[in-house]
């Protein structure tokens, strides 16, 4: 059964088409998600690491329909917790020890836009851990803002279908820390290779990374 076959039942169910867009929860097209899913589902029972807050419908999508084992590790809540407790300087060390999973144990990583909310040192710590966890040929999907957003909000990315994401905003303890240039992003994930990059009109860059079978650093 291919990816489209697995997604077909969801699309046929009433209410499972692209959800109505609203100003609070706009739905935007995504180019990279479909390619990420293709990579992910080329594995049997893939393990997916989600760095965002848990979204029930995403769990159903990836777990029920795609047969993924899902690991939810909400980095946004870690950021908030460190800020509120006045220990934000401890975040890089925390992220270095945050993930107990074995090396190369994850088939796909949904990084979303968490890197934008991290300082440089924390971003490096997280990127290094993601590179460690990802198996060879595995994929990492990350989003990067291309314009400074002034509001202190995170975004929950809700999978509507393989080509649409609903952006659900919620309160954050701090805003985006920096706008990363392409070269900064590539340096950050130096152990991975950029497979696809899409610049969207909503000021979001979608990048699909793949882990090469050999160390590129």
């Amino acid at each position: 059964m291919g990816l489209l076959d697995r997604l077909a039942p969801r699309q046929k169910e009433p209410g499972h088409g692209p959800a109505p867009s609203s100003s609070e929860n706009p739905v935007f097209a995504t180019k990279a998600l479909r390619k990420f899913l293709t990579t992910l589902t080329s594995q049997e029972s893939p393990t997916l690491l989600d760095l965002g807050p848990v979204v029930g419908s995403n769990v159903s999508f990836f777990g029920e329909q795609l047969g993924c084992k899902i690991l939810v590790e909400d980095i946004f809540s870690d950021i908030d917790r460190h800020i509120r407790s006045g220990r934000i300087d401890d975040l890089p060390a925390f992220l270095t020890k945050r993930f107990s999973q074995a090396d190369a144990s994850v088939d796909g990583i949904l990084c979303w836009d968490v890197i934008d909310y991290l300082d440089k040192v924390s971003a490096h710590a997280l990127a290094e851990q993601m590179t460690r966890l990802l198996r060879a040929d595995g994929a990492l999907l990350a989003f990067f803002g291309t314009a400074q957003a002034k509001d202190m909000r995170y975004t929950k990315y809700v999978v509507v279908d393989e080509v649409n994401l609903k952006h659900r905003r919620y309160a954050a303890a701090r805003g985006r820390q920096a706008i990363l240039l392409n070269r900064d992003i590539i340096r950050l994930f130096s152990g991975l290779r950029v497979s696809e990059s899409f610049l969207l009109q909503n000021n979001l860059r979608e990048i699909l990374f793949r882990k090469p079978a050999y160390d590129v650093r």
Partner: peptide
């Protein structure tokens, strides 16, 4: 690496 420019509109 490939680079594409997409013009998303709210659905």
């Amino acid at each position: 690496p490939t680079v594409g420019v997409q013009q998303p509109q709210p659905v």
